[in-house]
């Protein structure tokens, strides 16, 4: 069963809400990064919301996803809590990874979200493995890998899809073609126009859908999920989309014109879907505004939650390396802490 049904009013409103939440979360994260409050690297999902939400709405809560370095949208679409996400971006102990992961490594195994990933193309082998567990244990769940257009050029992505196809694993590979692999246009990185054409070489179904249309993405993923559950193996879907922001926050973006961004913004996935819901009477303009202000308040609360949350104690740097700890790390920890090298917690 899909987690959110696009067939009913409540489902459509929830889909809109999640897309708006992603945009608000990432706009806020961008501002906080610019202000210096969020350290490290931050990659924003703004413009691509229809892909994550359309896909995750078609999945069951038990289905697995793997994500990318641009993962905030996938997390929210999968139902993760913005408070704990923001706490992770702030490096707080209450974050999803206790402050050890940050923006590029948010994971929530309980929600079957197997991690954002700092390595382009590393998610598909993991999704293939999760799908293997499902098949091996006779479970009725699938694994969906989000990957970027850049990842399609990675060898391990080819290996993962080939393995999943050869073993008929219940997997879906969803390529988010946002037209740039880091700072280089996609058409300078691939010798085919539609990346879904690669599906032919695995003898699996491949489709290119409008990634700015949440309904189109949802439909394609729902069908792919059914095939996967029926033992018909994986599907490769390319969602044609666009990122409004740079590859990373602070990217000077020498590779594109502002005009291109405006051109895509005319087909903004949130605005077009909201208009459609208003047209069909799913919600009123007033209700949309109310939804926007609720979400703004929710994200503001998430920021406050993150600001108030505790930083980890430096001693926690030594935790979590292994299930069965090794004496080496215990000894180094005790030596360093005896020297006072890691002593100050603020």
């Amino acid at each position: 069963m899909s987690s959110i049904s696009i067939e009913d009013t409540d489902g459509r409103r929830e889909i809109l809400r999640r897309m708006l939440t992603i945009r608000e979360f990432d706009s806020t994260a961008g501002d906080l990064f610019a202000d210096g409050e969020i350290p490290g690297f931050v990659h924003l999902y703004i413009g691509e919301e229809a892909v994550a939400v359309g896909a995750c709405a078609a999945l069951d809560e038990e289905d697995y996803i793997t994500s990318t370095h641009r993962g905030h949208g996938h997390c929210i679409a999968k139902g993760l809590d913005p408070n704990r996400m923001m706490a992770e971006l702030f490096g707080r102990r209450d974050g999803y990874c206790n402050g050890k992961g940050g923006s590029m490594h948010i994971a929530d195994v309980e929600a079957n979200m197997l991690g954002a990933n700092g390595i382009v193309g590393a998610g598909p082998p993991l999704a293939t493995g999760a799908a293997l567990t499902s098949q091996f244990k006779g479970e009725d769940r699938i694994a969906l890998a989000f990957l970027g257009d850049g990842a399609v050029a990675q060898g391990q992505v080819h290996e993962a899809i080939n393995l999943a196809a050869t073993w008929d694993l219940p997997a879906v590979f969803l390529v988010e073609n946002n037209h740039f692999g880091e700072g280089t246009p996609a058409d300078e990185q691939h010798n085919i126009e539609n990346l879904s054409e690669t599906a032919e070489s695995y003898n699996i179904p491949g489709f290119t859908v409008d990634g700015m249309d949440v309904t189109a993405v949802n439909e394609a993923v729902a069908e792919a999920r059914e095939r996967a559950r029926n033992g018909e193996g994986p599907t490769l879907i390319e969602a044609d989309t666009y990122r409004y922001r740079g590859h990373f926050e602070g990217d000077p973006e020498p590779y594109r014109d502002e005009e291109d961004v405006k051109h895509w913004q005319e087909r903004d996935p949130i605005d077009t879907f909201a208009e459609r819901l208003i047209d069909r009477g799913d919600l009123t303009e007033a209700e949309l505004e109310e939804m926007r202000s609720e979400i703004a308040a929710e994200i503001e609360a998430a920021v406050e939650y993150a600001r108030d949350a505790d930083l980890p104690d430096p001693s926690e740097a030594y935790d979590d390396m292994f299930g069965e700890p090794v004496p080496e790390i215990e000894e180094f920890a005790s030596r360093l802490r005896a020297d006072g090298a890691g002593g100050d917690s603020r």
């Binding site: 082998p125 993991l126 999760a130």
Partner: peptide, 26 residues
């Protein structure tokens, strides 16, 4: 063959699948 699986000659793929399988309870 379900428990003793011949793989393609594809170390990145099947080692990675081993990681994903281990992460999900296999």
């Amino acid at each position: 063959g379900e428990r003793v699986r011949d793989t393609p000659i594809s170390e990145a793929g099947f080692v990675g699948a081993g990681v994903g399988a281990a992460a999900t309870g296999s």
